[in-house]
Amino acid sequence: MNLLTQPVGVSHYLIVGAIMFVAGVVCMATKRNALGVLMGIELVLNGANVNFVAFGSVYLRPEVTGIGLDGQLVALFVIVLAAAEAAVALAITLNFYNNHSTVDVDQADELKG
């Protein structure tokens, strides 16, 4: 299928969302820098957002009116909550950095029994 001439469907958006999501998950799993982990979370949330917007888009699924604005609304909530989450995570990271002089998450094992 020629992507340049065929209209794209929800699937294509979902593929993009999946790639971003997986990139975020791998980022969260492998990065040792706390801020790197935070960036992974942002990627995951964005991957999910792409899906929400795609499902709610009238361009892509005109036959389905059910979801309508829900997709966009959820995406908006995700954006706002991601901002809040980033603020708190950043505060925690900076606090951790203050106390331990490092941002390596592997060092944050004080509670280990």
Partner: peptide
């Protein structure tokens, strides 16, 4: 793990026929 997850998600994304194309 990421690769496995990706395969799973991609399969799910392309499974439904109605999602593949939109109105011209």
């Amino acid at each position: 793990v990421g690769g496995a997850l990706l395969v799973l998600l991609l399969a799910a994304a392309t499974q439904v026929d109605a999602w593949r194309v939109s109105e011209p």
